[in-house]
Design a protein around this nucleic acid. Sequence first.
DNA 1: CCAACCATGTAAGCTGTTACATGATTGA
DNA 2: TCAATCATGTAACAGCTTACATGGTTGG
Lengths: 171, 171
Amino acid sequence: MTPLAYALLGLIRDEPRSGYGLRKVFETTPMGNYSSSPGSIYPALKNLEKAGLVESRATGKKSVLAITTTGETAFATWLAQPVTSEEDPNIALLRFAFLQNNRPQSLDFLMSYARCAHAKVIALRNFLDSEPGQALPLQARLAVYHGLKTTEAAAEWAADAYRQLNEDITP
Amino acid sequence: MTPLAYALLGLIRDEPRSGYGLRKVFETTPMGNYSSSPGSIYPALKNLEKAGLVESRATGKKSVLAITTTGETAFATWLAQPVTSEEDPNIALLRFAFLQNNRPQSLDFLMSYARCAHAKVIALRNFLDSEPGQALPLQARLAVYHGLKTTEAAAEWAADAYRQLNEDITP
DNA sequence: CCAACCATGTAAGCTGTTACATGATTGA
DNA sequence: TCAATCATGTAACAGCTTACATGGTTGG
C-alpha cells in the first residue's frame, strides 16, 4: 500500500467516486501534492480492487468505486498509526486529514506529531552547533535553518490544532 | 539528471569523494533527506561517470570521484535555475545549499523562492475561503492550515536569509 | 461543428527501495 | 580474535512520469 493508494482509499471512503472524479480532487485541491496523472491513479485503483478494498458499483450509467468492509478496516488501521520520525511528515498529515469526527485519535495524532517535530528541531539545532555544522558555508547553513524554521512552525501548528480540537468539545 | 544526481555532483564538486564518503554525508547530515542507500547511490554515480560529469581518480590507494569541466558547467547551469512553483521546494533548497560564495545568485534565488512561497500562501488561503474549502471537515481544514503555516515560515525564512546575505556584504 | 471536457486506460523507461553478497581493514 | 566499519556493488521488484491512444458528451 503506497501513500497514493491510501489517499485514494480515503477519498472513496468519504464518498464513492469514479477514477475521473478522483483525478479531479487531486487537480483542484491541495491534495494534489499526493498525486497526479492517470498513469498512476488507474493502476493504483486496480490494485485496490484486486486487494478487495474497493469495489466497482454501477449507479445508473456511471460506474463508481465504493469502499468495502475490508477496505474500511484496512483504512481504519492505517489511520490509527502514530506518527514516527522515520515517516514522511506529509504522509502523516494525509492521515490526519482523513481523521474526521474522531477527536481522541486526532488528539493522539497531534501529540505524536508534535513530539516528532520537536525531536527534529533539536536534531537540526544540534547539527548547526556541531563542528561539521559550523564549518558549513553560509548558504548551506541557511538551508538547514530553513528546515529548522519550517519544522518549528509545524510544531506550533500542532499545538494550535490541539487547542482548537479541545475547545470544540465544550462550546 | 535526478535530484540525487545533482546532490552527488555538488558534493563531489566541493571536494573529490568516494562512493562510501558520499554515503556518509547522507547518513550524518540533514542532506539525508535527499538519499539513502547504496542501491541508489552507486548506480547514480555510474550514470554521472557515463555522462562524463565526474571521473574516477586514484589518490594513493583509494579511488575517488572528481568533477570534470563538463560537470562543473552542468552543475553551474543547474544552480542558476530560478525557483518555480512547479518545482519541489526541497530540491530548490538543495540548489541553494550549494550556492556558496555566490551572493548575487543567492539573492536572486531567495527572491524567486519568496515569490513562490507567497503564491502558495495565497493559493491555500483562497482554497480555505472557497466553498469546497469551507465544506471540509475540521481535520482536513487543519491539514491545509499546516501547509499554510509552514509555507509562511518558509517565506519569512527567505526574507531573513536575504537580509543576512546583504549585511554580510558591508561588515 | 468544434472545442472543451468527461472518462479510461496502456507502454516505455527510469528511479528508488530492499535485501543480499563480498571482502579488506582496524581497534578493543 | 571478533565486531565494527570501510568499501563497492548486484538483483528483484514496485512505483511513478511521460506520452500516447481512444471514444463519448456537451455547450457555445
